[in-house]
Design a protein around this nucleic acid. Structure first.
Lengths: 172, 172
DNA sequence: ATTAGTGCAAATCCTTTGCAGCCAT
DNA sequence: ATGGCTGCAAAGGATTTGCACTAAT
């Protein structure tokens, strides 16, 4: 069962007009430093797969994109890194557990895949463009306050929330 | 592979204090009529599996509960109906396509399962109790208006949304 | 009668796990 | 060195699909 390779050729179907910038090749150092610090600071060994995955999540964040495990695999593969899909899942789990990444579901019509984003500390909600898959993060104190009020009005306290607005670009 | 039977014994772990009422046995008629009309009205044959599934979704709705495919299977099984799990998935898909049911993801921490609810026409958001799994539906014009505004402010129009607030009962 | 719908088994997709070898600390 | 990581293969759960058969109009 050659699962590890089978999605290598899945293109990454970029949004039109978006250029992917996986800026570095195989050399270490430079921008990678801070990722290593994030890892060690969170009590995780700064291994190459972890650093690379963080880098790609960072790149994706800059592109307003959330990646699924296989997309991360594909990007790494294109960049010449052969990192097993199982490692990717495990690393993402580790990163989630230490709070460095957040997992989302963003289920569309059919089957669901999880997507991951770097956690920059503060919570936020998401708008997802149904055409480009672009993700826009936002916070709205009014909505948040309202959620609290509604929960309380029913005798509940809020322990978590997820708001996803599916949107389409207005092109008049 | 006896998939079709293996979840028959999965209890349905009711919320404390909630009594399940699968009111009818195996005879037809009575309350079933309207379900058959919903089906034929939507252009679907009123087959027994479809009617039964609608009935159970109705019951579940009255219990403030959303069911997954296997839970529906289990309830049917308990009620003496042997309907294959694949049929349940297919029926749910049909019902979703004609707008009679809505599929949700309500993903918790780990693996996700889909849950289904009868569509009574108007959209609403959900609060899900993390302890009892009870689902409270609500609408809030303020939140909805805000969502529109936010989308427009970014140059988008809303095509869909899903807000799930995970809550816990306040017991002072 | 005819075609859609069903049941069963098998396939698929995404994700997780077991285990032996590898690499950061 | 050594215990946590990795890779691969295989298992797993939820959902879908292929196909022969049954049932609703």
């Amino acid at each position: 069962m050659q699962k590890e390779l089978k999605m290598a050729d899945k293109g990454m179907d970029e949004a039109p007009g978006l250029t992917v910038q996986v800026s570095e090749g195989k050399e270490r150092g430079g921008a990678a430093k801070s990722h290593e610090q994030w890892l060690t600071g969170a009590g995780l060994k700064a291994t190459l797969p972890r650093v690379r995955i963080l880098q790609h999540l960072k790149t994706a964040h800059d592109e307003q994109r959330h990646l699924g495990a296989e997309e991360i695999y594909a990007r790494l593969y294109q960049a010449g890194e052969r990192i097993g899909i199982s490692t990717i899942y495990r690393v993402l789990l580790n990163l989630e557990q230490v709070g460095l990444v957040t997992r989302h579901q963003f289920s569309q019509g059919a089957v669901s895949r999880c997507v991951y984003e770097l956690s920059f500390g503060e919570r936020h909600d998401h708008m997802v463009c149904v055409e480009t898959e672009r993700v826009i993060e936002f916070r709205d104190p009014v909505i948040e306050a309202r959620q609290e009020q509604i929960a309380q009005a029913h005798g509940y306290e809020v322990v978590g929330r997820e708001l996803v607005i599916r949107v389409r670009r207005i092109t008049p």
